[in-house]
Design a protein around this nucleic acid. Sequence first.
DNA 1: GTGGTCTAGACCACG
DNA 2: GTGGTCTAGACCACC
Lengths: 129, 129, 129, 129
Amino acid sequence: MLFRIEPDSSIPIYEQIIAQVTFGVASGSLAVGGLIPSVRDLAERLMVHPNTVARAYQELEREGVLVSRRGRGMEVADQADNLCRKQRQEILRRRLRDVLREAVSSSLPVEDIRHLMNEELHRVNGQKK
Amino acid sequence: MLFRIEPDSSIPIYEQIIAQVTFGVASGSLAVGGLIPSVRDLAERLMVHPNTVARAYQELEREGVLVSRRGRGMEVADQADNLCRKQRQEILRRRLRDVLREAVSSSLPVEDIRHLMNEELHRVNGQKK
Amino acid sequence: MLFRIEPDSSIPIYEQIIAQVTFGVASGSLAVGGLIPSVRDLAERLMVHPNTVARAYQELEREGVLVSRRGRGMEVADQADNLCRKQRQEILRRRLRDVLREAVSSSLPVEDIRHLMNEELHRVNGQKK
Amino acid sequence: MLFRIEPDSSIPIYEQIIAQVTFGVASGSLAVGGLIPSVRDLAERLMVHPNTVARAYQELEREGVLVSRRGRGMEVADQADNLCRKQRQEILRRRLRDVLREAVSSSLPVEDIRHLMNEELHRVNGQKK
DNA sequence: GTGGTCTAGACCACG
DNA sequence: GTGGTCTAGACCACC
């Protein structure tokens, strides 16, 4: 699986990592029962501090997405795929709701909001790699 | 004009104030050339510290949305309505793009994204007060 | 004598008035023993608050430049011309020193400073009205 | 790099800090890509409150002179040297113009202004440390 | 009354 | 350790 982060985003790096692992498990590109990259390995690949990766993994373990296997590393937990699909849905719904709530509160007409929304969905979907 | 903030949002209070003034000028509920509420007045209404309001106003002055009238207060600058309409459009477009980009990168099918999007737009628009 | 102020300058309006009166007396366009415009009159002409003009006059009275003549207004004090010429010199010297000190501290080479200085003196002198 | 401020100047401390950083980058004593002193460190050195330094740094970040590196500190941005050299020139030109405009408006003869100017430039340059 | 600056110190997120 | 935000309250200049 390909990890990519944006160091200058306003979203903390560890949250970006959490989201990417969650989405990876939800989509199946990180298989249940499979090992994920070690903290050091991923930190080196992403050029971030190992503490940052460790924090993300710790959080994912707390959520039940990862389990640590002594001496081997961390693997994707049983049932994590269902869990992650639910979380994916809820994360995205929540973010959409926040931005749409702000858009509506700005007094921009709903038609304009819908127009912007479709425009950006097309643009973003077209750039998918 | 009605100001409302969410103290527990992850968005800083002073940024919420900036957005509300910007949107207010864009929609015309804050008229060009008119005085806006004084720092102390708005702080009391929002139950936040005056410094927090002052910071927002200073930022808006720097952007050219407000001008300070010594001894009288701050007023909405000339041309600020055009400026704010542009900014409103760009702020919302940018936020929509970010959340949609994340949604697409999560491998959730585009149809599901569109469904979520419309669902939330309806819900949020229905709650408009 | 023509009074002109810049309401948006960083220099307070009352100080601008003080400087203009001082310079006017120094140059002779406000004659010793002559009456100066009343607070109300000048405030109206400059479109500023009467308190602001009053404050400037008060300060000039304290300095000995103006004296109030009961029932008639304020007039330029005896010897004020000499006093104002000294003050003019000192005010200007002080401001020049401050800006040059800053220029030197900026590590811009002295030759460049001298060049800027002459360039601006020419420009400003050419615009004299 | 040596920082020094005058607490009793009429120029706000945070603006003095902004000017010193700008001049430091312009002159090369603050290198592009390098970290600048931390907020707490500089505050201690200058014996001012950390908030005052933070405000200056934030303004410099907004101008594009500094970039914040999360968890590490603030560093001098790419291209900041060119930017700061332009700003230095414009700041000094603007201040010179203002004081010379005032001098000319005072009706002091141009020769006297030029004399004062050279006198003060020599004096200030001689005191350079 | 207005905004502007500064000190003081708390709490947080991030690395 | 770093910077970012917020509260609190002081003092000032200006109108």
